[in-house]
Design a protein around this nucleic acid. Structure first.
Length: 584
RNA sequence: GGUCACGUAGUUCAAUCGGUUAGAAUGCCGGCCUGUCACGCCGGAGGUUGCGAGUUCGAGUCUCGUCGUGACCGCCA
């Protein structure tokens, strides 16, 4: 027998009269008594089957017994409908069925398999294989597939080779926590799963594969978020004999290709570039959303000589100008103040200045600042009558960060963010190091193989915190899509960096000796980039969470609630691995 | 490690200030129905209010603990 001659999205009016066979899932039965309609679904669409009590009562009775999600094969003749359904691509036709076979009955599913399911997140995750039957999820996975194809083709055209790297590797001291795999053949030793193929792609450069790419799983044992999974997919790339400019140009091309082919969005001209420092000062974030303005402006100098102690004692005073928001009532301002004072944001307070339409001012600091003083502030923000200034003060870094969060919050409250609007940009000149309070030492901001800017190499000894790197991120609409750097290709400089990061020479040798050895044998200058593929797909799908662009994701406790992983091992497995579980 | 929210019928939700028999929609089951496509109409079944303790004359509602789910902070080179 033949299961199908066509799929369920295929048949049109022009196929009328054909004898066809379709297979799929019963989406819905509509039993009218004398006749029964069945919507048959596969991943291509829905086709209506029709059964008539008058022409074939036995078959019609059989059709009435079908439940939701039964898997069936139906054969029959394509016929024009007397009542057409304009909402369905196949809505002009139906199949007058003359043979029906149940391939597999189905339990009643715990939620509806429709565009808008009635099921909650928890239930849909537990029955992920049912959720994946729904068209929105199928569209997401198809989008993901299509983007992967475009990426491979584009990079192939550019001469990149896709080369696989190992998944069982060695734990490295820097960066995220490693997922670890015990070795049976070497009891007491462990592999680690790669946080990224970083070292391997650099070794491939040493080996002369001057353009490498891979769409590859990476693993990080850290706490999860809506846009973070313990295993996730990177578009991992590396190039030799290139400058930062060469890399940005190449991958700007990739980004434009994806925008164009997938979203039909044409991005004209070069992507904006701003430095890390600018991003922090103007947007309070290293991944700014440039779909709207409302830039942060510093006011520290302007407010320094007042009676207002809060400002006088602050390292930093700054704010944003919310356009047209002077009409905010007390009822709207109070929750905003509460919002910035939540522990997550950690601001001490929020000062507002209403620049009224009649050019007067009303502020929460009227006691300390008169009209002319506030006018200076307003001018500083290029505020128009009708705007609302929101000011915060405190420690510089923390206040900028809080202002950045407030900026996003206000944009959403004022509805300033247009969907289907995309503003990509490069954030460049990241600091080489950041101070880690917990470890009381510098850690690499990007990773320990990132090259310092040549002019900053002397700073490694004098003031490492001030050194910048040839490191860059691609940011779109406030989402960090990818990042990379020019790498160190000199063994001596690499050694110096390990030293700056606080590794003893022995430690560096133990962990990365093979890399430094490799650099002794003719390492080309090289650099690269890695993109968060899941995030990129989610961005294009218009989703805030990457879960729905991953077929089988984990929940926010890193559990797979469908298969119930992670799970215990039995004693014989543990014995074989030489592992004993410590109680509590 | 921390903060917050939620957990009631298969499902999505409701239940006033702590008050009497925990409701609705949808799904499900049965019946009727020949042009439906959110089919319609009639009827029916369906509940350990996540779990445990406490306060109270009385707890879905308040308190504590616990488990689960989600969001965020820390963390994520």
């Amino acid at each position: 027998m033949k299961y199908r001659t066509h799929h369920c999205g295929k048949l049109r009016l022009s196929d009328t009269g054909q004898q066809v066979t379709l297979s799929g899932w019963v989406q819905k039965t509509r039993d009218l008594g004398g006749m029964t309609f069945i919507d048959l679904r596969d991943r291509y669409g829905i086709t209506q089957l029709v059964f008539n009590m008058k022409t074939d009562p036995a078959l019609c009775e059989q059709a009435r017994e079908l439940g939701r999600e039964y898997v069936i094969t139906a054969a029959g003749q394509v016929a024009e409908r007397s009542n057409k359904n304009p909402n369905l691509p196949t809505g002009d036709i139906e199949i007058i069925v003359n043979s029906l076979q149940i391939l597999n009955p189905a339990e009643i599913p715990p939620f509806t398999i429709e565009d808008q399911s009635d099921g909650g997140d928890e239930l849909r995750m537990k029955y992920r294989y049912l959720d994946l039957r729904r068209p929105p999820l199928q569209r997401n996975l198809m989008l993901r597939h299509r983007m992967a194809q475009i990426i491979r083709r584009y990079l192939d055209d550019q001469g990149f080779l896709e080369i696989e790297t190992p998944v069982l590797i060695k734990s490295t001291p820097e960066g995220a926590r490693d997922f670890v795999v015990p070795s049976r053949l070497h009891a007491g030793r462990f592999y680690a799963l790669p946080q990224s193929p970083q070292i391997f792609k650099q070794l491939l450069m040493v080996s002369g594969y001057d353009r490498y790419m891979q769409i590859v799983k990476c693993f990080r044992d850290e706490d999860l978020r809506a846009d973070r999974q313990p295993e996730f997919t990177q578009i991992d790339c590396e190039m030799s004999f290139v400058t930062q400019e060469d890399i940005l140009e190449t991958f700007e091309g990739l980004a434009k290709e994806l925008f164009n082919k997938v979203l039909h969005v044409e991005i004209h001209g070069e992507f904006q570039k701003i430095t890390y420092e600018q991003a922090i000062n103007i947007y309070g974030s290293d991944k700014p959303d440039l779909r709207f303005g409302m830039q942060i402006r510093e006011l520290t100098a302007e407010v320094s000589n007042s009676e207002f102690q809060v400002f006088n004692q602050a390292e930093y005073v700054g704010g944003i100008c919310a356009p047209g928001a002077a009409g905010f009532s007390r009822k709207q301002l109070a929750p905003l103040t509460d919002y910035v004072k939540t522990p997550q944001i950690g601001a001490k307070g929020l000062i507002y200045v209403k620049y009224n339409e009649n050019q007067t001012f009303k502020s929460s600091v009227d006691k300390f600042f008169d009209g002319p003083a506030l006018q200076i502030w307003a001018d500083h923000f290029d505020a128009q009558p009708g705007d609302l200034l929101l000011i915060m003060s405190g420690e510089r870094e923390q206040t900028l960060k809080a202002l950045g969060t407030l900026r996003l919050e206000m944009a959403s409250r004022l509805d300033l963010i247009k969907p289907d609007h995309y503003v990509p940009l490069w954030v460049v000149d990241f600091p080489l190091f950041e101070w880690n309070e917990e470890a009381q030492r510098f850690t690499a901001m990007h990773h320990p193989f990132t090259a310092p800017k040549p002019e900053d190499i002397p700073l490694l000894d004098q003031d490492p915190g001030k050194a910048h790197a040839n490191a860059y991120d691609l940011v779109v609409n406030g989402v960090e899509i990818g990042g990379g750097s020019i790498r160190i290709h000199d063994a001596a400089l690499q050694e110096k960096l390990f030293e700056a990061l606080g590794f003893s020479p022995e430690e560096a040798r133990e962990r990365f000796g093979f890399l430094m050895d490799a650099f002794q044998y003719g390492a080309p200058p090289h650099g690269g980039i890695a993109f968060g593929f899941d995030r990129w797909v989610a961005l294009f799908a218009g989703l805030g969470s990457i879960r729905d662009v991953i077929a089988f994701p984990k929940n926010n406790m890193a559990r797979d609630v469908m298969m119930e992983s992670p799970a215990s091992l039995n004693d014989s497995q543990l014995n074989e691995l030489g592992i004993r579980i410590r109680k509590k």
